[in-house]
């Protein structure tokens, strides 16, 4: 508790984080996204339930964020780090069958393998922090195209939103047909 006070972050904000985490995690659990089977069936291209679930979440959230005008932070397109990080992430995704968030839900669910996933993740964070000064120049900084969005590319956030909804919505319909 003293630790929290030392950070100067109001208890209300911390409570908000906790409540949001419980809600987010419970939807993940109830939708089957914290299950190894569902992640692997998606990556083996046998069952796209989780992909449709994720795209639906992004579609609904994108409409809400647009309506409430509540964009907070746009990650810049740093091509090298996004592609290299994404490729490494994907291998871990297939090995673990979890992502860094769902493994936390699985941990609470009592799935014993999740314990090791979390430990591997904490070790990776320490190793990454140690290597950061070395990685910064070759892998993080190059090919930075700035904070691009679909809206900024098309000149209008509304058009950007519509394009996202059409593409993700279309993809969801196609995946539903394939199964």
């Amino acid at each position: 508790m003293t630790e929290f006070i030392r950070t100067g972050i109001p208890a209300g904000i911390l409570a908000l984080g906790l409540v949001t985490g419980v809600a987010f995690g419970f939807v993940i659990f109830k939708s089957g996204a914290s299950r190894y089977e569902n992640i692997l069936k998606m990556l083996l291209l046998k069952d796209f339930t989780i992909l449709k679930f994720m795209m639906t979440a992004v579609m609904v959230a994108s409409v809400g964020i647009f309506l409430f005008d509540s964009v907070i932070y746009i990650a810049p397109v740093q091509l090298v780090r996004l592609v290299a990080g994404g490729l490494i992430f994907g291998v871990g995704f297939a090995l673990a069958g979890y992502c860094p968030g769902t493994v936390m839900v699985a941990l609470g669910e009592g799935k014993r393998d999740a314990v090791y996933g979390v430990m591997g993740g904490i070790l990776a964070a320490a190793v990454f922090a140690h290597l950061y000064p070395v990685l910064e120049k070759p892998l993080i900084n190059p090919l930075n195209y700035g904070a691009l969005t679909i809206g900024s590319l098309l000149g209008s956030n509304l058009i950007g939103l519509i394009v996202l909804l059409v593409v993700f919505g279309g993809a969801t319909v196609v995946l539903q047909k394939i199964k």
Binding site: M54, G85, L87, G120, V127, I140
Partner: peptide, 21 residues
């Protein structure tokens, strides 16, 4: 395998600047 997977997930996330969420 899960330990290795967890390692790559978080290393990749930190490198990319974020994860699935």
């Amino acid at each position: 395998q899960t330990f290795a997977g967890g390692f790559l997930l978080v290393f990749g996330s930190r490198l990319a600047g974020g994860c699935t969420s």
